[in-house]
Amino acid sequence: MSLPQPVPPSWKDLGKSSNDLLGKDFYFNGTSLEVKTKTPSDVTFKVAGARDAKHDTINGDIEAKYSDRKHGLTFTQTWTTSNVLRSQVEVDNQIANGLKLDLNTSLLPEKGAKTALINAAYKQSGFHSRAVLDILKGPTFTADAVVGRDGFLLGGEASYNITEGKVHRYAAALGYNAPEYAITLHGLNNLNAYSASYYHRVSPFVEAGAKAIYDPKATHGGVAIEVGAKAILDPASSIKAKISNAGVLALGYTQALRPGVKASFGLALDTQKLNDPAPVGPSHKVGLHLVFES
């Protein structure tokens, strides 16, 4: 008798290990701050702000989240400096085991612009599926599914415009996940663009990964490649580095200053334009990200 298969990652999380390695903790686009607090009654508050060094603007938002774990209910309300009001209501494992439903809305009062999305996710042994209904745009119905067995993953996504009565976007993916490494291949934009990613946990303290993207519209017929690595220096600090075939070298350093306080520093250098004024010339960027959490 075969053992039950683990729940595979969702469609959006295929290749997540490589994406996180190459995309997270590189703060070089200005200065940002994030403050998180949690009350004994399971209400979480988060205030985040960022100053864009290029445009010299400050954007931020304030978020309040209430979780009722007993009834699987979560309510989130966000207000941004752009005066956008976002609301999300989530219900998890109440209607059926493995089923999660949520309603996500946004409103821009000044322009009367609004969105409304109904999301559903269902996961069981060896299967993970999601569906999104955009009520106000189209309306459009998007669904994806991932099946997994013995580490092998197969996924697909399609978006259907209900008014026009046709599928206007589809994609497919193939991957393999092992305890120490993962490989993922994507065919995107109606199979007109492709990506391949690789992740390897070399040791408990070292991670490495790479990603290649072929998109005739975005890469001018070529292939965009990024290669990166992360080293955990000690329980309180880590360093990351990545370089692209365009010659951009990015460095990120994260340090836990004390429990609940974390600082991340980022630097990006265009190695083909090292004569530009450093460190904040048009080809070089620096940044700082602070997190306070209680």
Rank of each mutant, 00 (worst) to 15 (best):
N189Y: 03
R258C: 06
Y122I: 06
I135V: 13
S195I: 04
V227D: 01
L274K: 08
N245L: 09
A229F: 03
S17Y: 03
G165Y: 03
L3G: 03
G187T: 05
H168F: 14
R51K: 13
Y194N: 07
V84T: 15
N161T: 09
T142C: 02
R258E: 15
S82M: 13
L3A: 08
S87E: 13
L233C: 06
R149W: 08
R130T: 15
V261D: 08
S125C: 06
S283P: 02
A171C: 08
S41M: 00
P259T: 03
T44S: 14
P259H: 04
A158W: 09
L117H: 05
N83H: 14
T105R: 00
E180S: 10
H55N: 13
S67A: 15
N189C: 10
I162M: 14
D56S: 15
G126R: 08
Y27T: 07
N275G: 09
F265Q: 00
D56L: 13
T31Q: 08
V291F: 05
H128R: 08
G15Y: 02
T115H: 02
L288Y: 14
L101N: 13
A171M: 01
A210T: 10
E164F: 07
D92T: 15
K114Y: 06
V91L: 15
E63D: 12
A263N: 02
N104C: 01
G156H: 04
